[in-house]
């Protein structure tokens, strides 16, 4: 399923702001899906919470009279689920739009809020390296990609990538191929 994919070759119908007419996105990289485990767990708890809170709340009485009417409890429950959907949506978008792209011309790094965009031409790329850190990184094969450049921004780093060795290899091969084609 491409929507959950963290390494896409030749992504379909994908463009970025500032893309040239003759430019084509060859790789699109996202953080590993596993990094979302924290907020997914929280979302699961949030979804279950009304099942435990609503019944005692609806039974709350004072001097024989119900304290909160059923209509308001329904509104409260609905609000809670809308809030949970908002929480899931916001966190998913933060993961989805935090990308590193390699086109036939440039390397582009877009951060999670899509407000910071850094790019450099492939001719500026000097070195591509990867690093797997920690026990969980080794077990789950998650690591970081570093792209050294000769431009003003010295290094593009993209953290928590799945299969970082393979990704590093693919990017390095592509950069070498395009540099050779362009004679640089």
């Amino acid at each position: 399923m491409e929507i959950l994919s963290s390494f896409i070759k030749n992504p379909r119908k994908t463009t970025y702001g500032g893309e040239d007419n003759d430019e084509k996105i060859i790789f699109l990289l996202r953080k590993s899906v596993i990094v979302n485990i924290n907020w997914v767990t929280v979302a699961f708890i949030l979804l279950l919470l009304p099942l435990f809170v609503s019944p005692p709340l609806s039974k709350l009485t004072y001097m024989g009279m119900r304290v909160i009417n059923p209509g308001f409890i329904l509104a409260l429950n609905l609000f809670w689920y809308i809030f949970t959907i908002g929480f899931i949506f916001q966190n998913f978008l933060a993961w989805y739009f935090d990308v590193l792209m390699v086109t036939n011309k440039k390397v582009i790094d877009i951060d999670q809020s899509c407000t910071d965009v850094s790019e450099t031409t492939l001719s500026n790329v000097q070195d591509v390296s990867s690093k797997v850190k920690g026990t969980w990184g080794v077990v789950l094969d998650i690591g970081d990609i570093f792209i050294q450049t000769s431009a003003e921004q010295r290094e593009f780093e993209f953290l928590d990538v799945s299969n970082p060795s393979k990704v590093r290899d693919e990017i390095a091969d592509l950069v070498a191929k395009i540099k050779k084609r362009n004679g640089s």
Binding site: E2, I3, P11, R12, K13, T14, T15, Y16, G17, G71, F72, L74, A75, L76, L78, F79, I82, I85, G86, F89, L93, Y96, F97, V99, I110, C114, T115, V117
Partner: peptide, 29 residues
């Protein structure tokens, strides 16, 4: 606008429905 993907329209639709529902729940309450 910064990154257009096949899911762009779906995300906008979800955001709009989410906003409408959040207004509806205020009216209900």
């Amino acid at each position: 606008a910064n990154l257009t993907t096949p899911q762009s329209k779906l995300f906008e639709r979800i955001a709009r429905i989410h906003m409408v529902l959040s207004i509806f729940v205020i009216i209900l309450a």
